[in-house]
């Protein structure tokens, strides 16, 4: 009986927590969006944040994109060789990167590279009471700090995803055509025959935009609502990475179900 009560209150606490986060998160997001007008008036702040979230993530995105492409090309070649259709390796690499791996893996990398940094920065600003100090000076921290960070992340994510996908396809090209010696014409032409711009590339871009919004919103939310202690900030950073990874994977499933099923 006692165990049952403990279980019940545990489930209850989880539900209350989840509901609180959902409501608070939505209100917070609306508040950030409403303070975005001030960001548009000061593009310098936005530029700084694109540099912070996008440019500084460039190295990890380019390198991992290249390696994901290399591995895909190698594995795809080994499998397709059994069926004697190694020319289709271009299709395999391109479709899997454009539809799934590009947006998803770059979003996961973005969450761990830029999302965690955003959370840590906002969390430490809160811990050291910089946000409160801003409010004391009559500066709205939402429009000065949080909205530029949010938009910087949202803008950077699709660009990073496109770079990741392009690098991956180049990686696949390098390993299969240059190293192994698959016919270059078959590689590109079969790829072009099966990759559709609107159906595949554009849907991938939509995916990366959605992931960008989700990851950055989670990052600024966790940072803003972190407990103002060293431990609180570290927990918030961990939560950002874990929650964004789960959100990206769940959203990817939903988006894929809508985009790539039927016909």
């Amino acid at each position: 009986m006692k165990i049952f009560l403990i279980l019940c209150s545990f489930v209850g606490r989880l539900t209350v927590d989840a509901t609180w986060k959902l409501g608070e998160g939505t209100l917070f997001l609306i508040r950030v969006l409403r303070s975005s007008a001030a960001t548009a008036m000061r593009p310098r702040l936005l530029l700084d944040e694109i540099h912070f979230a996008g440019v500084l993530s460039l190295v990890i995105i380019v390198v991992s994109g290249l390696f994901v492409g290399l591995v895909l090309g190698l594995q795809g070649y080994e499998t397709l060789k059994r069926y004697g259709s190694t020319g289709a390796v271009g299709t395999l690499v391109a479709l899997s990167l454009v539809r799934e791996l590009g947006p998803v893996v770059s979003a996961l990398l973005f969450a761990s590279r830029a999302g965690s940094a955003i959370t840590a920065e906002i969390g430490i600003m809160k811990t050291t009471e910089q946000l409160t100090a801003m409010e004391m000076m009559g500066v709205d921290p939402h429009s000065r700090v949080i909205a530029p960070m949010f938009w910087g992340g949202v803008i950077s994510m699709p660009i990073l995803s496109a770079i990741f996908t392009a690098m991956g396809i180049l990686g696949g090209y390098l390993i299969t055509v240059v190293v192994i010696g698959v016919d270059s014409g078959a590689f590109w032409s079969q790829m072009q025959a099966s990759v559709d711009f609107w159906g595949d590339v554009f849907n991938g871009i939509i995916k990366s935009c959605v992931f960008g919004i989700a990851v950055t919103a989670i990052a600024v939310f966790e940072g803003y609502f972190a407990h103002p202690t060293a431990e609180g900030v570290s927990r918030a950073v961990t939560r950002t990475v874990v929650t964004s990874a789960l959100a990206v994977l769940a959203l990817d499933f939903i988006l894929t179900a809508f985009m790539f099923t039927g016909a």
Binding site: L47, I50, H51, S156, A162, I163, T165, A166, V195, I205
Partner: peptide, 23 residues
């Protein structure tokens, strides 16, 4: 750097649209 980043991104997009996808 932001300029380089954005141009690099646009180039990737053009590559995806014309070289990878059937345009």
């Amino acid at each position: 750097w932001v300029g380089v980043f954005v141009i690099f991104g646009l180039l990737s997009l053009v590559f995806l649209a014309f070289k990878v996808g059937s345009s």
